[in-house]
Amino acid sequence: MKFIHTADWQLGMTRHFLNPEAQARFSQARLDAIRGIGQLAVEEGCEFVVVCGDVFESNQIDRQVLTRAFDAVAATPGVTFCLLPGNHDPLDAASIYISNSFRERKPENVVVLEGNEPFNVADGVELLAAPWTSKRPLVDLVDRASELAGPSDALRVVVGHGALDSRSPDSADPSLISLSRLEARIREGEIHYVALGDRHSTTDEGSSGRIWYSGAPEPTDYVEVDPGNVLLVELDADRCTVESRRVGTWAFERVERQLSSEADIEMLESLLDTVTEKERTVLKLALIGQVTLAQHDRLDRLLEHCTDRFAAVEAWERRSDLHVLPDDAEAETFGLSGFAAEALGELRKLGQSSDDAEAAEARDAIALLYRLTRSAS
């Protein structure tokens, strides 16, 4: 028996650092991933797909997002998509899953896992679902769903969402999923695979090889490890094979560079040139060191060019520490005299002050003065 395990589609997600054009492409990529998942299921002979929570970014998504998502799912009508409400889209009174728009437009191959009763998804295969009904569960929903199911001869796949207790520093959180209890149930043959969502990084948990986070099908942040995948699961009572398949097309990349010369800037430019699929790459830069005004001007032009080429370019403020100061030759080319020359000298001294705020202001003033003198000439 084969199926696909995925999670955290978060359809309707927006990112503040994306301009409208890039945001539209980011949103479309998430819909394209759904079509890719359906096509993969057809190619691999999978009867169903489990989507383990956070299908939608929230319960207040735009109706167009819902409609386009349903179109993507309906493209493979022979594959059943089983949707689990998660913490972003819980099955509460305001849930998208009970809205008129959802009920009226839902394709026949979509099933919402809204209860704890075992769901017969295929011949001899049951899903034990643990849907979120609020933002803050007061119990381990996954363990409760497993416990309520009772004995069965069917292959059982637990479909859950949330953090494992082995990964959380907050031991008092009642909603944490107990890894040890899941592994005990697997050893006893009560359950055969645990499909989890919430963690956006593809992760094999525990020692059984049967407890997995699929990760998000498209990356959403820099801290994720190996996102952009779904899991192809082949399962029977005695054997479980899990294969990661890439469906994502976007990337979030961090770059840290030490800059102190023209050669360093050239190396940074060469490094950024090697990035493939720039239009689908979000870049965060941490630049450290000290450069001259001319070097900083070149760096500004480089970053401006990158902003046009990449999906987005962000400054990694917490890790950045780049100082801009004119060398002696540059100071002479300012062409200043009298009071203005004295002011430049004072600013150069302040630019090396131990007071970080004062030094930063002085360096900004020097850079502005440099540009004004260049434009005047």
Rank of each mutant, 00 (worst) to 15 (best):
W9M: 04
E21W: 04
A24F: 02
S27K: 07
S27E: 14
S27N: 05
A29Q: 07
D32C: 01
R35Y: 12
G36E: 12
I37Y: 04
G38C: 13
Q39W: 05
A41Y: 01
V42Q: 15
F48K: 01
F48I: 05
V49S: 03
V51Q: 08
C52L: 06
E57W: 10
E57K: 10
D62H: 15
Q64H: 12
T67E: 14
L83F: 14
L84H: 07
H88G: 06
D89C: 03
P90Y: 05
L91F: 09
R103E: 15
R103N: 15
K106A: 09
E108G: 02
V112F: 08
V121A: 12
D123E: 15
V125F: 08
L127D: 13
L127F: 13
A130R: 07
T133H: 09
R136P: 01
V139W: 12
S146R: 13
E147N: 01
P151W: 06
H161M: 07
H161Y: 11
D170K: 11
A172G: 10
A172W: 05
D173L: 07
S178M: 08
R181C: 01
A184E: 15
R185V: 11
R187Y: 08
E190T: 07
I191S: 02
L196K: 01
G197E: 11
R199W: 12
H200P: 02
T203D: 14
D204S: 15
A216G: 11
P227Q: 08
P227D: 07
G228N: 10
V230G: 10
V230L: 09
R239T: 10
R239G: 01
C240Y: 06
T241Q: 14
T241I: 14
E243D: 11
G248M: 00
R257Y: 06
E262V: 13
I265Y: 09
L268D: 09
L272D: 02
V275E: 01
E277D: 13
E279F: 05
R280L: 10
L283A: 04
A286I: 08
A286Q: 08
L299A: 02
L302V: 01
L302G: 01
H305F: 11
V313L: 00
E314G: 00
R319G: 05
H323D: 10
V324H: 05
L325D: 11
L325G: 02
P326C: 08
P326L: 04
A329T: 15
F334A: 07
F334K: 02
S337R: 14
E346V: 10
S353M: 12
A357M: 09
A357F: 03
E361H: 04
A362M: 07
I366K: 04
L368R: 13
R371P: 00
